[in-house]
Design a protein around this nucleic acid. Structure first.
Lengths: 155, 155
DNA sequence: CAGCATTAGTTGGTGCACAAACCATTTGTA
DNA sequence: TACAAATGGTTTGTGCACCAACTAATGCTG
């Protein structure tokens, strides 16, 4: 008679793949929170600002592709950023459907504060840069694998 | 004159740490979604069921510690699981404050379906088990580092 | 050029996540 | 034994995240 207690539990084992990923994500974001809060940003808003500092102006479609986020998620988020005075949501004159999200001067200036965040995070985590780099490579492979599994283009 | 374009952008570079983590988490959960949906479970609910299949009965406090989730998140989630007929929320007779979350027969039976999920995920991702194992170890180190940074006990 | 499919964004609904305020039970102690 | 502190959960409010349905502008094709 097979004793279930003897078999290494696949549910317990595999739980670590998805579970560790979501816990790591949430807990690392929690490290960002006290640093972002004085800037008046949430973590997703911070990511949007990163994209804009690098590539503004951007359409919702572009942000959606870069951040791999639903337009339905970005739409209200961008309105909050606009209400905070960091961005403006204009219409692209060449295509009246598309939005051109641009930075306000205040939004541009916030970059100075944001530059202090990465070193502060690394210091708080107390992990080696090489290990973080290595983790990043692993994550990129998982992202590619998940995107392929979800039928997204490999781009 | 310093040309900013020449400097490797710390904001763009570091973005990968937090950003890759959240994208990987969301996109891997998206791989689970079509498998969990026919079971009537969301991914967080699946994690709660995993904990219960292994350790029921559990108090909200125990689930909160195991899954590293706020009690305020678990409370309505457990009510939805109860509404779905998978768990019952009883009172611990020894401590009327504590809840004893127990599995219903339907909740217990669902484990049979759940056992098909881990291999299906691995197949869909198409990644080697060794690489997943390696990723898991990296994630555990990040979780420990983040917990330390957030002032949690190292447990 | 008329009409239909496509594309860009928004809206509404459900559910997760966190923080703060709150309530009830227990525990510790003066 | 009364009462204050601590503990276990719930509630409320804000903000993500996804999906499906919708609107408006554009493009394509007969």
């Amino acid at each position: 008679m097979s004793d279930l207690a003897d078999i290494p539990d696949p549910l317990s084992l595999e739980r670590q793949v998805c579970f560790a990923l979501s816990v790591a994500s949430r807990n690392v974001i929690a490290v960002y929170r006290p640093l972002l809060e004085p800037m008046g940003l949430t973590h997703p808003q911070y990511l949007v600002m990163l994209a804009l500092w690098e590539h503004a102006p951007l359409a919702v479609k572009d942000l959606s592709r870069m951040l791999q986020l639903d337009p339905g998620t970005l739409s209200p988020l961008l309105k909050r950023l606009e209400a905070a005075g960091l961005v403006r949501r204009e219409r692209d004159p060449d295509d009246e459907r598309a939005l051109a999200v641009v930075l306000t001067p205040e939004g541009r200036d916030l970059r100075t504060d944001a530059e202090k965040i990465p070193p502060a995070i690394v210091a708080r985590l107390g992990m080696g840069l090489d290990e973080l780099q290595h983790l990043h490579e692993s994550l990129m492979r998982v992202i590619a694998a998940a995107n392929a599994a979800n039928g997204h283009a490999t781009a």
